[in-house]
Nucleic acid binder design. Structure first.
Length: 399
RNA sequence: GUGAGCGUAGCCGAGCGGUCAAGGCAUCUGACUGUGGAUCAGAAGACCGCGGGUUCGAAUCCCGCCGCUCACC
């Protein structure tokens, strides 16, 4: 069973698309959201939970699994699917993003990237060829090219990183041997229209079965991200899935679908859940807030997830405040359900040609975090992290 | 009962004559987008056990009381 993407319907008012991906481990209706399971586990969820939630694709990470337990071990235990007990489709990220987020702990050359393990400080190198070999050992249904994710605001660096990403994409394509795995190319180019256009055309020319958009949601404004997606859309092959890497805020998913994106992955729902924040139709709800201490209502009235059907906000707050493991699990169930339900609603709306109205209505109700607050916090966090890395180069720099 | 030590925010605790009494935990609020049970940012919270005295000035020195701890009878 080879990888295949069927374009089933195109929205008449937006660039939204309805499709179906066929993989060796199952079919994936698109637009799709993939929960992230970096270390071969979607944190706090068993594969059974994911099945109940209706997940059709999950993401795992080459960087983390290469360092621990190691691709040989995974291969020996029958590959990622067998190893983690998940029967459905899996996508592995190449590790490019992880390696490049380790500012100061890695060195980029034309051949590849030398970096230090966040686990034990040992030195390693990733080249396009090596990353292909690792991903083939892991055995996911969809694998990614090794790319360089640049700081989005620096033109010269964005251009150099993009060009290197292009050369590496060619090497990845050469090195890729397993026909049962679909290798996706990745478009880079920061927030610069000419670079993005150039990158889209180059990657499209390599004829990968799917195309990813990298280098977004890494610090640029939402407007820059939406504008970039918009200008990219006409340059992406119509009959191949488009994958926006790392995006998963509900408002971004809607805007991206409207701009022709078919696939998403994001840590946000699961990470927020572990930090006590849950999604509702009106926006985020922070379970730590004192106002929920005696609230008998579920997180969201009418939500069909296991958590909302059985537990009150008061109980959820209690679990979160007490650092109880069950709180992480139940909040994660709700948030993953929220995203997967959103995708089901989106697909239904596209099929019925009501997507634009659906999107506008959703966004009218859904309150998003203030852009200025986010920007300020991001800047603070960035400088602190760099300082920490300088002081503790062997510390936990990985993601 | 005697002796010594100690009482500073909900908890731990620095300050031991001189600007608006550190810091940590907890609490409250916000952030988190190719993973981060992490972290970051901000806020609130103190009749410095009580009463008296010395001093220009006391959490800080002196006296009394109350409470706690340890040691000894």
């Amino acid at each position: 069973m080879q990888f295949l993407f069927e374009l089933q319907h195109e929205c008449t008012q937006t660039a939204a698309r309805l499709g179906m991906m066929h993989t060796p481990h199952g079919d994936i209706p698109t637009p799709v959201f993939a929960p992230v399971g970096t270390q071969a586990t979607v944190k706090t969820l068993a594969p059974r939970d994911l099945e109940c939630l209706g997940a059709t694709l999950i993401l795992a990470n080459t960087y983390h699994l290469y360092l621990r337990p190691g691709p040989d071990i995974v291969a020996e235990l029958g590959g990622l699917h067998r190893f983690m007990g998940w029967r459905g489709p899996i996508l592995t990220d190449s590790g490019g993003f992880q390696v490049f987020s380790m500012e100061g702990l890695r060195k980029v050359t034309e051949d590849g990237v030398v970096f230090r393990s966040h686990v034990d400080g040992s030195e390693h190198i990733f080249t396009p060829e090596k990353v292909m070999r690792i991903q083939e050992q892991l055995g996911a249904d969809i694998i990614m090219c090794f790319d360089e994710c640049a700081t989005p605001t620096d033109y010269a660096y964005s251009r150099a990183a993009m060009e290197r990403t292009h050369r590496w994409a060619e090497r990845c394509r050469e090195a890729h041997t397993r026909p049962d795995q679909a290798l996706f190319g990745i478009v880079q180019g920061g927030i610069f229209p000419d670079l993005r256009r150039q990158s889209a055309e180059f990657i499209a020319g390599l004829d990968f079965p799917g195309i990813a958009i990298g280098g977004l949601s890494v610090g640029e404004s939402k407007q820059d991200m939406y504008r970039t997606l918009e200008l990219l859309e006409p340059h992406l092959p119509r009959h191949k899935p488009r994958y926006l890497m790392g995006v998963g805020a509900p408002e971004d998913v809607l805007e991206a679908v409207a701009r022709g994106v078919d696939m998403f992955d994001c840590v946000l729902p699961t990470r927020l859940a572990r930090n006590g924040a849950v999604f509702t139709r009106t926006g985020r709800l922070n379970l730590r807030n004192a106002q929920y201490t005696r609230d008998p209502r579920p997180i969201e009235e009418g939500c069909t997830c296991y958590t909302c059907q059985h537990f009150s906000r008061a109980y959820m707050r209690h679990l979160v405040m007490s650092d109880e493991i069950l709180g992480l699990h139940l909040a994660t169930i709700h948030n993953v359900h929220f995203l997967l339900q959103l995708m089901r609603d989106i697909r239904k709306a596209i099929a019925e040609d009501t997507f634009l109205a659906f999107k506008e209505q959703f966004l009218a109700e859904f309150r998003v975090p203030d852009e200025q607050v986010r920007a300020r916090n991001r800047a603070l966090r960035g400088s602190k992290q760099q300082a920490r890395r300088r002081n503790h180069p062997e510390g936990k720099g990985g993601r």
